[in-house]
């Protein structure tokens, strides 16, 4: 039986009808039509489904939608658009931190959570922070490089305004 859940996704308050056993990943992809978040292993071992819940990177495949109700959910759609990439996305694209791209949204969100709490991570901290996300293509090296470049881009400089974040990319019909 469906219940009405109140979710805040990418800054937009939504009401979603979902059964008790609904997984956040399914609600994001199916009900909210936010398919940027990927279903990989579905068992918490690949990190493709990473989203931010109250700023913390979490596995949406192992989170009930009900557990995320009332919290700020951020998906990759909130970061940038193809024509206006977020600095993290731009760095992954330019440095080669993405090949087939399936793990990329998860890595982007994990990077966002990392850089939000640690704007200048060293190599070891980056490797540790992304060690819950699996990539079969890149060998991680260019992902690590991209995180470093993104960190530099995002570093607060007095002369430059901080790049705009948020603004939902798509709305549910």
């Amino acid at each position: 039986m469906n219940k009405i859940l109140k979710l805040t996704v990418n800054g937009v308050a939504r009401e979603v009808a979902a059964p008790d056993n609904a997984i956040l990943l399914d609600v994001l992809r199916e009900s909210c039509r936010l398919t940027g978040t990927k279903r990989g292993c579905d068992m918490g071992t690949c990190g493709c489904c990473t989203v931010l819940i109250d700023g913390e990177n979490r596995l949406s495949c192992l989170t009930l939608a009900a557990q995320a109700a009332g919290k700020e959910i951020t998906t990759v759609e909130a970061l940038g658009t193809p024509n206006r990439l977020h600095p993290i996305q731009a760095a992954f694209s330019e440095i080669g931190g993405s090949q087939c791209g399936f793990c990329t949204p998860g890595f982007i969100m994990t990077t966002k959570a990392l850089l939000d709490r640690n704007p200048d991570p060293d190599d070891k901290e980056i490797r540790e922070a992304i060690s819950g996300n699996l990539c079969r293509c890149t060998g991680y090296i260019k992902i690590i490089d991209a995180v470093k470049v993104a960190a530099k881009e995002l570093a607060p400089e007095p002369a430059r305004p901080t790049p705009p974040i948020a603004a939902p990319a798509r709305r549910a019909k």
């Binding site: 068992m43 490797r127 540790e128 690590i144």
Partner: peptide, 17 residues
């Protein structure tokens, strides 16, 4: 038959290249 028991190296195991 899953990514927990089929052990793909993580970012920590990846050497410098």
């Amino acid at each position: 038959p899953n990514l927990l028991d089929y052990k793909i190296p993580t970012s920590i195991e990846m050497p410098d290249v």
